[in-house]
Computed example of a mutant assay.
Amino acid sequence: MGLVLNFIVQTIVWFGFMGAIIFGAAGTMDYDGGWLYLGAMVALSVIFGAHMMRVDPGLLRERLKPPVQKDQPLADKLVLIPVLLLMFGGMGFMAADAARWRWSMMPPSVQWAGCGLLLAAFLFMYWTMRANSFAAPVVKIQKDRGQAVITTGPYAIVRHPMYLGALFYMAGTSLVLGSWWGLVTVPVLTLLLGIRIGIEEQALRSGLEGYDDYARRVRWRLIPLVW
């Protein structure tokens, strides 16, 4: 399947599945937060994906691959299960909280601010991908693509900036969907990503020349001045 067709098909399937979770959990299609979130996500994904297709098709091709791959460590496959369950289950919980149970009463201004946070998260993660053409969604050494240690851009600040962007993405998702309780998913995701960072660093230290020196220079793994 060509890259363009693969991108279109995965976009339709991904957001169709996401919409089914959100509106199924909400119990109604009359859910402004759900439509606002889907609209923002589709627009951002199409814009950034189309640009990535032009400037770095190799990375886009990697990011369109499935979350379980042959060269991926077993530990990473296992930790991805709770990560994906948290992301999709958390999304359903947020929708149910805001539209079905109505535990959270969030003003529209905060939801629109959440859109700004989603945009900031996408821009940060896109900056990360422009700095690192090897930012695959799974833990593996891409020998076929000549993977090397990246020290520029956000990698000069933290060793795993994509995960930092994911935390802001999760927080933005909760706000746009209108769920205060959904923010609880952020510290849980932080814990799971911390476990995955340990798995990833073990693979990078053993399979990527120069990573040990880089880790000594850039102290912070995920959150600057914290860890």
Rank of each mutant, 00 (worst) to 15 (best):
L84G: 10
P57C: 07
A75L: 08
F122T: 12
W103M: 05
D97P: 06
A120Q: 05
V46E: 07
R63K: 08
L119G: 01
V46F: 09
W14C: 08
I8C: 11
R100W: 07
M87R: 10
I12S: 10
F23T: 02
M53I: 10
R54M: 13
F122V: 13
A75C: 02
G39S: 09
G49S: 02
I21D: 00
A121E: 06
L78P: 00
L84I: 11
L74R: 06
I12G: 09
A75P: 05
W35Q: 01
G92E: 06
A75G: 00
V83T: 08
A26T: 10
G116P: 03
K77N: 06
L86V: 00
A25Y: 10
G90D: 03
P67S: 12
L118M: 07
Y126T: 15
D76A: 03
A43K: 12
C115T: 11
A96H: 08
Y37N: 06
A95E: 09
A25C: 15
M87Y: 14
W112Y: 15
A43Q: 14
R54W: 14
M29P: 12
Q10D: 13
F48A: 12
Y126Q: 14
F7I: 04
I47Q: 02
A75S: 10
V13E: 03
Q72G: 04
F48L: 11
R54K: 13
G39P: 05
G58I: 04
A40L: 15
D76F: 05
A43T: 15
A120D: 03
M53D: 09
A40N: 11
S104F: 01
P67E: 09
V79E: 07
Q111H: 05
D97W: 04
A99C: 02
G89D: 14
G58T: 08
I22T: 02
M106W: 03
R54V: 15
L5D: 03
R102V: 11
F122W: 10
N6K: 15
V68A: 09
D97N: 02
P82F: 01
M18Y: 07
A43C: 14
A20W: 12
G34V: 07
G49V: 01
A95L: 06
F48N: 06
M125E: 13
Q69I: 09
Y31R: 00
M87Q: 14
F15N: 08
L119V: 12
K77D: 07
A121P: 00
L85C: 11
P66D: 10
L123K: 03
W101F: 09
G58R: 05
R102K: 12
W101E: 05
P67G: 06
L85F: 11
D56H: 10
S109T: 12
V79G: 04
Q111F: 01
M105F: 14
M52T: 08
G114E: 06
Y126C: 02
S109G: 07
Y126H: 13
M106R: 02
G33Q: 00
M18G: 10
M29S: 12
K65G: 10
V46W: 10
M29F: 11
